[in-house]
Simulated scan of single mutants.
Amino acid sequence: MNATPSDSRELFALNKPKGYLVTRSDDLGRKTVYDLLPEWAFKEGWMPIGRLDLESKGLLLFTTNSKINHALTTPKNCIKVYEIWVRGHVSDEHIAEALKGVESPQGLLKALEVVKMGMGGAKTKLRIIIDEGKNRHIRRLFGALKDPKFGTPLKVLELCRISIGSFKLDIKSAQWRFLSVEEEKLLIKNLD
């Protein structure tokens, strides 16, 4: 491990590209995030904090510290920010519904904040903030909303996590780096 004295001993970040599973190994032989990391990350038991599905990309933190892992994955404890592209025109009504929440088999799915960032053809770019991450939370939340014109579910085409708590993604796709001691302190200072 080539950490410098200013590097955290508890946390590192990976910018996960699409097409990698967040798991230690896959029975089907598919690529996992550990294929992007040095061998010691697997050998020393560094575990991902939370998940990003196969088609999602962006910030993934790793730790060997179960207390940090628990604190960062406890609902309401940690704000996570995503940029997504949704197929269809996302209306103010859709945004209001996402903020109010929709019932799903996984429980209530909702966003704390939804900001429309732009349009591209028949797609809408949004910034979404949530403080818990149920399985496929954002994809299921928007999938529960209907396109008023076609009556079909909205579909998240792209999803990228850009920050977790105070830590913002600042590395290229498929790259990783240790958090600095300062970044670690900032990230975990507000956690119980």
Results as ranks from 00 to 15, higher is better:
P105F: 11
E158M: 11
S163Q: 15
S166M: 09
L157A: 04
M119C: 02
S173G: 14
V86T: 08
K172W: 05
I68C: 04
L141P: 02
A111F: 03
N135R: 03
V86I: 14
L179P: 00
Q106C: 08
K110R: 13
E103T: 12
E103L: 10
I164P: 02
S180R: 03
L157G: 00
L99N: 11
R140K: 15
F150P: 00
K146Q: 13
A96M: 09
W85S: 07
H89F: 09
P153W: 04
G133K: 01
D170M: 07
L154N: 04
C160Y: 00
K134R: 13
E83N: 12
R140M: 12
I95K: 11
L169N: 04
Y82F: 10
R136P: 01
W176Q: 04
L99F: 09
K116W: 09
E158L: 13
H94E: 03
M117Y: 03
G88I: 04
I95F: 06
D131A: 09
Y82T: 08
F178A: 03
L157W: 01
L112I: 09
F167Q: 07
P105T: 14
C160K: 15
F178H: 05
N77P: 04
H89N: 08
D131L: 03
L145D: 11
V114E: 09
P75T: 02
S104P: 05
R177Q: 09
K146L: 15
I128A: 12
H137A: 02
T73S: 03
V86Q: 04
G120F: 02
C160M: 12
S91W: 05
S66L: 10
T64N: 13
W176R: 07
Y82D: 06
C160N: 11
T73G: 01
K67H: 08
M117G: 01
A122Q: 06
E158I: 04
K134A: 06
H89A: 05
I138R: 03
L159R: 03
R127K: 15
I79F: 01
F150G: 07
I171V: 13
R87Y: 04
K125V: 07
E158Y: 09
H137N: 02
E103N: 13
L126A: 10
P75V: 01
P148C: 10
R177I: 09
R136Q: 12
L157P: 01
L112R: 14
A71V: 02
V156Q: 05
S104N: 13
R177H: 10
N77L: 05
K155Y: 03
C78M: 08
L159W: 00
A98C: 14
L108P: 02
